[in-house]
């Protein structure tokens, strides 16, 4: 069961059960809806930006532990960061989630802080989209894409 423990690390279970910033946001500057048609998972993401910096982030939606924890930790990680830094973070998360098992860029993983909890997801190809949904939605929100973002 070592694979299972890699996937469901304590941090992920915790955020999956008690997601942070799980609330709607009045007066947000950026918003996007993400949807995974295969499983029905939804992430509606809200951002408040000021001078190129995210000052607040929250989400609504429902999904599995992986997608909920991913959205929850995303909202924590982007708060206070510049949009430029967020795109770099998003690139590193994407690389981690889609790299072949055992071929992580360790330097980058260390830079990711607690998002490194998702490094086990790449061993479960069927679950990668659960983790990437919130990050695709973040892209759309920052690019002011009004369409619902689909994982498919």
């Amino acid at each position: 069961m070592s694979g299972l423990r890699d996937l469901y690390q304590e941090l992920i279970l915790d955020h999956g059960k008690s997601p942070r910033n799980h609330r709607p946001m009045d007066g947000c500057t950026h918003q996007a809806n993400g949807f995974n048609p295969v499983c029905g998972d939804k992430v509606n993401l809200y951002l408040s930006c000021e001078d190129g910096r995210v000052t607040d982030a929250s989400f609504e939606g429902n999904g599995c532990a992986i997608s909920t924890a991913s959205a929850s930790m995303l909202t924590q990680m982007v708060k206070g960061k510049s949009v430029e830094d967020i795109f770099e973070l998003r690139r590193m998360v994407g690389a981690m989630l889609t790299s072949s098992p055992g071929e992580h860029d360790q330097e980058e993983i260390e830079k990711l802080g607690k998002l490194a909890a998702f490094s086990g997801v790449c061993e479960f190809p069927g679950r990668v989209k659960c983790a990437t949904l919130a990050w695709h939605t973040l892209d759309a929100a920052l690019k002011d894409d009004e369409k619902t973002i689909s994982t498919e």
Partner: peptide, 27 residues
């Protein structure tokens, strides 16, 4: 209760049990 079907599907798969998790094309 407290376990999303996809998470249950992954845990069952790790024990060799193949089930379907999702909306079964009947939303």
């Amino acid at each position: 209760d407290g376990v999303h079907p996809h998470d249950a599907g992954t845990i069952l798969d790790q024990q060799g049990v193949a089930v379907r998790a999702g909306h079964h094309c009947a939303q």
